[in-house]
Amino acid sequence: MTTTSASTSGAGVFDDITASDSSLRRFLHGLPGVDQVGAEARAASLGTRSIKTTAKAFAIDLAIRMVDLTTLEGQDTHGKVRALASKAMHPDPADPTCPMTAAVCVYPDMVATAKQTLGSSGVKVAAVATAFPSGRAALDIKLADTRDAVEAGADEIDMVIDRGAFLSGRYLEVYEEIVAVKEACGDAHLKIIFETGELQTYDNVRRASWLGMLAGGHFIKTSTGKVQPAATPPVTMIMLEAVRDFREQTGQMVGVKPAGGIKTTKDAIKYLVMVNEVAGPDWLDPDWFRFGASTLLNDLLMQRTKMATGRYSGPDYFTLD
């Protein structure tokens, strides 16, 4: 196992790049461009893989293990979060062979409740922090938000970047904010949400990906789920290319999390095919790939039951939470 020091920057070789705003801009704008049409065609073609029988069963269980079961609503309550956490541990109460999800993902004020329910089950607690979803707050508030979540027991922090700063080209500001949040995370893992729907171009997605990796993120994540479009196959593909290339250059792996809009087993399997063929099979693991989703889980469970029983199931047979 290759282990690197817990340095905050992606790798020492990139120190020069992050030395100034202009050097960082030069680097990010020097990354190869992304042709929209070609990228979308490639993503679509990966979506035509036909995953059947044993491969499908494997993929469904893997996808369940990768779900960050999410509730991020103004109307969330402790009761709702407890129910969600129970579901994460026992997605299909009728079938003990059904794996647990990777994590539950909640607002910081729900972390303690989630943690309490999950106990030592192994299901992680992820908290969205840094003035999620807009990120429009002062840095010290974002850092306090992060620290609160970590103190309440969050294993993972899903932060949002300052898209305004990014789009106006103040890359170093974005970078430094990520570094600061990462420091506030302590031992918690950091996922960096780009809100790719606001970044508009795939070139920007690639630049944001590298920015996030340089700043030391453990995961790069597409979306908050509050902006359309959220995760799309091409956006996720660009990010998978970025983590693949980053490992090529630094030896370090970064995870990828598409979030929002992935609702069906069919969609999830397309993403897994993409992970397999673009980043490589090393990423086919909950440590390196997650789905930010809520309704996806029940569809995975229905398909799982169909595979086991040979008949189609219905929503009444799966829990609502």
């Binding site: 196992m1 290759t2 282990t3 690197t4 817990a6 992606g10 893989r49 036909s50 995953i51 059947k52 029988t53 044993t54 491969a55 499908k56 494997f58 993929a59 893997l62 990796m213 030391g216 993120g217 453990h218 490992r247 030896g251 370090q252 792996m253 970064v254 897994l272 095919v273 397999n276 490589g280 099979p281 090393d282 086919l284 693991d285 440590d287």
Partner: peptide
């Protein structure tokens, strides 16, 4: 970002 798996997790073999 702290480790690289020693070997691939179970291979996603398309049936």
């Amino acid at each position: 970002m702290v480790k690289v798996p020693e070997r691939a997790t179970p291979f996603f073999e398309y049936a």
